[in-house]
Design a protein around this nucleic acid. Structure first.
Lengths: 236, 236
DNA sequence: CGTAGAATTGAACACTCTCAATTAGCGTGG
DNA sequence: CCACGCTAATTGAGAGTGTTCAATTCTACG
C-alpha cells in the first residue's frame, strides 16, 4: 500500500546496491550507540536507503540495530485496514530497531534519502552477556524509548488537535531547528499518523497558527517558530 | 483532585501503618522479579496500600521497584487541567515503577486494597552492575513495558471506541478471567482514562456489547465473555 | 434501610473527520 | 526556460463519532 517502487527490488536486508562505506559519526553530545559499539569492540556499517524505502518490516526477525546517521526514519504499526500509527520519528543520532524480542514489532521506513549505521543484534547481545556496561547502555536506550512512548500516550489519548500540533512543533524545534529554521522531513500525512489526526486537521491547525503569527511557513515544510511561549501554553 | 482522603496522612514512601509482613509469592509461570531478586541476593518487602492510595507520584525520586502481589494498580500521567491518561493496569505478578531515570515519570495508585512487594532501586542497580543476568532481566522488563506502550499507542491513536473496548476486554480476559468470569477491579472512569474515551462512551459500548450477546454483565464489574471471536474481529 | 458513589441512559452539541475542489510545489522533459 | 504532470498541501462544506451536560437507576456499604 505504502510500499515505494524502489523497495520492491531491494533485498530483504542490507540492500546490496546501497553500500555507502564508512561514514564519520554525527557530532552528538552523547553518542551512546558509538559508546556501546566501542565497548563491544564492534564497528557499525553504513547503508543508504532511499526515500520511502523499507528498512525492516513488522514481524520480521530482528537481525540488526540501527542508528540514523543522516536523514530521517519513521517507525509505525498498521491495522488490518491500513490505518497507521507512527510511534516515533528518528533523526540523526537516534537509535531504533532495538528489540529485546526476536521479531520486529514495528515497520521502519526512510522518510527521505537516509544513511543508517547498523550493527548485528546477535553480536550486541553477546557483548551484553560479557560486558555489564553494554547491557546497561542497551537498557538505558530502551528506557528512553519507553519514556517517549509514555509521553506520547498522554498526547494521543488526552490532548486536543491544537495541543497535539503544539507538542509536535516543540519536539521538532528541539530536535531539528538550525539557525531559527526547522526543515520538516515528513509529510502532513506522516505528522497526522504520528499525532492520531487526519492530514487535513494538521494542515488546518498549521494554517491557524500561522494566521495567529505563532508560526512562519516558507514552503509547507519550512517552519519558523515565532512564539514558542504561546506553543508551550497550548501544550497543556 | 483525585487524591484519596487516606493518602494525605500516609508518609511519602512505605506507609508506616500498612506493613503486612512477608507474603508468599503469587503462583506465576515466570516470576522474573523473583528471579532478579534471587540473583541479586535480595528479598522483597511487602506492603499494603488501601484503595485509591498513592504508591508514588510523578516527579518524585524513584527509590523503589514494585511488584503487585495481590490487588491492582494504575499508573498514569496528568495534564495541568486534570485530564488523565492511564498507561497501564498492573495485576498480580506485574512489575512497575522500574525507571532507569532518577525520578518517577508516572503516578501509581492502588485501584483496590493491594499488596505490593518492593525492592530498593539502588540495590537492584548495584546488583545489575555486578551481575549481567540481573541487568539483562531488568532490560527485558522495560522492553516488555515498551511493547505494551507501542500496542497502546496504536489503540489510542487509531482505533474506534468499539475497537478500543474490544481490545480492553480481550486483554483483561487474558489477564484475569477465572472460571469464565472476569472481575474488573477498576471503574468505568479508569477504563475510559486507559482507552482515551469518556466513561459514558465506555458504558454505552459495554451496554451495546451486552445487548448483542457478546458480553454478560452480572454487576457492573463482573463480566463474562460470551463471544470472544466477535471481539477479536472488532479488535481490527 | 439510607446514603453516596458508580453506572446507565438520553439529548444536544462540538470537535474532528470525510469527501471534494482548488492551489501550490517540485521534478522531468520538451 | 517554461510547460507539463504528479504529488503534497490547503481550504471548504457537510457528516459523524464521541463528548458534554443532565437525569435516573443501580449498587455497595455504613
Amino acid at each position: 500500500m505504502l510500499a515505494p517502487s524502489t523497495s520492491t527490488i531491494a533485498p530483504a536486508l542490507p540492500p546490496l546496491g546501497s553500500i555507502a562505506g564508512k561514514c564519520t559519526a554525527p557530532a552528538l553530545a552523547t553518542d551512546k550507540f558509538g559508546a556501546i559499539l566501542g565497548r563491544a569492540g564492534m564497528v557499525g556499517t553504513d547503508f543508504c536507503y532511499r526515500k520511502d524505502e523499507e528498512i525492516y518490516g513488522e514481524g520480521e526477525p530482528s537481525e540488526y540495530v540501527y542508528q540514523v546517521v543522516k536523514g530521517a526514519v519513521r517507525t509505525y504499526k498498521l491495522l488490518s485496514d491500513g490505518r497507521r500509527q507512527i510511534d516515533s520519528f528518528h533523526l540523526p543520532g537516534d537509535v531504533f530497531g532495538l528489540e529485546s524480542s526476536p521479531t520486529c514489532r514495528l515497520t521502519a521506513e526512510a522518510i527521505v534519502d537516509t544513511t543508517i549505521r547498523l550493527a548485528k543484534r546477535s553480536s550486541l547481545e553477546q557483548a551484553a552477556e560479557v560486558d555489564v556496561q553494554v547491557a546497561l547502555h542497551l537498557w538505558s536506550l530502551t528506557a528512553g524509548h519507553l519514556r517517549h512512548a509514555e509521553d506520547h500516550m498522554l498526547l494521543l489519548g488526552r490532548k486536543t488537535a491544537m495541543e497535539k500540533v503544539a507538542t509536535f512543533l516543540l519536539e521538532m524545534d528541539r530536535r531539528l531547528t538550525v539557525a531559527g529554521m526547522m526543515a520538516l522531513p515528513m509529510t502532513r500525512r506522516d505528522i497526522a499518523d504520528y499525532l492520531g489526526l487526519t492530514l487535513e486537521t494538521v494542515s488546518r491547525t498549521f494554517s491557524q497558527l500561522q494566521s495567529q503569527g505563532v508560526l512562519g511557513l516558507t514552503g509547507a515544510r519550512q517552519v519558523a517558530l515565532r512564539n514558542r511561549q504561546c506553543l508551550r501554553n497550548m501544550d497543556a
